[in-house]
Amino acid sequence: MTTPPIATTAPAPGEPGTTGAASAPGRIEGRSLGRIAWTRFKRDKAAMTGGVVVILLVLLAVLAKPIEAVFGLDPNVPHSDLLDPNLGGLPLGSFGGMSLDHPLGIDPLQGRDLLARLIEGSWVSLLVAFGATVLSNTLGTVLGVVAGYYGGWVDTVISRVMDTFLAFPLLLFAISISATLQGGAFGLHGLPLHIAVLIFVIGFFNWPYMGRIVRGQTLSLREREFVFAARSLGARGPLILFKELLPNLVGPILVYSTLLIPTNILFEAALSFLGVGIQAPQASWGGMMNDAITYYQVDTSYLVIPGLAIFLTVLAFNLLGDGLRDALDPRSN
C-alpha cells in the first residue's frame, strides 16, 4: 500500500481501478482542475493571443523606466527645435514629426517624444487599472460572499449599500475629491496622490458590480450539499466561507477581473481626459488623448496613438477574460 511516490518511469503494475494506470508512471496524481483549464485554454488561439499581449503589456509597464533609460527616451523633454512656430507650434515634417529619433512623432506646442510618453503612460494607466480592480474586487468579494452566505438582514443591508453606491454620482464625486485633495493628503503629493485618488475613486465605487456577481454565485453555492456536509461536521461560518466557498469563486473572480481591468483603463482615461486624474506634465494614456483633442482636426495621429494603445489593451484583456471563462467553465469540454 505504501508505494514510494517516486517518479519512476515504470508503469504501476496492476493498479486496480486506476484509469490512467498504463500511461501514468508509478505516481498517481490527480489531474487538477487548474491543469484541465490550462489544457483547454491552450487550445483557444484568441485567448492565447490576448494572454501574450497582456503579458507583454505588463512587462512594458513594469519595465517602463528602465526601457526609457536604455533607449534614452524622456517623456518630458521638449524638442522646440523640431516645431514650426509659423504653424502655431506644430511639428516640422510630416506625420506629426515622425523620424528615426521619434518613431511616433512629437507632440505639438511642446515637442515631447510620443513613444516615450506612450511607454511612460503605460505604467500609470495599468497601475491605476490594476489597483482599482484589486480594491473593488476585494471589497466586492468579501461583501458579496458574506451577503450571499448569511442572507437575511445582513444580505438586505449589504444589497441596499450596493444599490446606493451604484446610484452615486461618481464623476461629481471624483471632480470634487480631486479638487479638495489638490494640495496633498495622507502624506502624499503630486503623482502618487493622483494615482491613489484615481485608484480609490474607481475602485471604491465599482465594488458593487463584483459584489453582485459574487453574491449571486454564493447564493447558489451555499445550497450545494458540500456546504451542508461541512456544516454537518461542525465547520464554522468563516471556515465555510474561505475553505469551501471561496475556492469555487476563484474562477468567476478571475474572469471578471480580467474583464474589469480594461473598463478601469477606460475609466482612468476618461477621468484624466476630464482633467481630474493624472495631471500634466505626467504622461498617461487618458492625458495624451486630452492633449490631442485640440489637434485632432489638424492631425488625427495624436488621438489615434494613445487610442490604439487603449484599444489593444482593452481587446487583449477581453480576449483573455473570455478565454478564461470558457476554460474554467466546468460544463465545457
Binding site: 482542475l33 450539499e225 451542508f228 454537518s232 469555487n248 476563484v250
Partner: peptide, 13 residues
C-alpha cells in the same frame, strides 16, 4: 449524513 447528490456533495475544488 450521506447526501442525495454525489455531484454536489463533494467540493469540486
Amino acid at each position: 449524513i450521506v447526501f442525495q447528490d454525489p455531484y454536489s456533495s463533494l467540493n469540486p475544488r
